[in-house]
Write a protein that binds this DNA or RNA. Structure first.
Length: 207
DNA sequence: AGCCAGGACTGAG
DNA sequence: CTCAGTCATGGC
């Protein structure tokens, strides 16, 4: 079922080649993962462009920027006071630990470290592990829960790790596959499997 | 006008 | 552990 849904979505929407940031640098992915929390990507793009234009798209240069100025740069992404603190916490963390993430494949251990950083919760941690470091973890977000409930007979209210385990247990442990699947679910939900109701493709895929 | 957008944190029960 | 309240901008 889980694999079949991927195949159907891929047949319809094709490869998404995520992560959708411009330069695709590791830090831009990390910053984007934090800035996109409960926020439309179009707003995140403005904040990322501001950071890039101000030459602040690195952990070092985020840390040395006063809060007042950083907040102005990321304001378009919303929750700017909180996200300012989150970006600085992540900057500090990766200045110390980026090398660990490049060399270690102990995903549970890396994930625990990320979850200890202020502003990095389960989904953001998995965004970073998967898209910034190519670790095979499956991301669970609001769209995944909706698609799972509508099309896979799963309980969308299951705890994060429980749902994640179901997906990962039904697929090969492949970062590229997980990345495409997550991106396809997003494309699908934005296009047809909407919160407000099912579009034509959504109805067609159902069951 | 109000709902929605790729959540996380905090405090209470 | 589950839940509500909070945080903020911008598009539709």
């Amino acid at each position: 079922m889980i694999r079949e849904l991927f195949d159907r979505l891929f047949a319809i929407y094709g490869g998404q080649h995520w992560w959708p940031s411009k330069s695709g640098t590791r830090w831009e992915i990390i910053a984007g993962a934090i800035l996109v929390q409960n926020t439309a990507w179009s707003n995140v793009e403005k904040a990322l462009a501001n950071l890039e234009a101000a030459d602040r798209m690195t952990a070092e240069r985020i840390l040395t920027l006063p809060d007042e100025e950083l907040r102005e740069l990321i304001r378009p992404a919303g929750f700017f006071k909180a996200k300012c603190a989150y970006l600085k916490a992540a900057s500090s963390f990766f200045l110390d630990h980026e090398a660990d993430f490049l060399k270690s494949d102990d995903i549970p251990a890396l994930r625990r470290q990320l979850l200890a950083v202020n502003g990095i919760g389960k989904e953001t941690a998995d965004d970073i592990l998967l898209y910034a470091f190519k670790k095979p973890v499956f991301i669970i977000d609001a769209y995944t829960r909706r698609a799972a409930a509508r099309h896979l007979h799963l309980d969308g209210t299951l705890p994060y790790e429980a749902l994640q385990k179901i997906f990962m247990g039904s697929l090969p442990q492949d970062a590229d596959l997980f990345g495409e699947y997550h991106a396809l679910i997003l494309a699908f939900c934005k296009n047809s499997c909407k919160k407000s109701g099912c579009g034509e493709i959504c109805k067609q895929i159902m069951r």
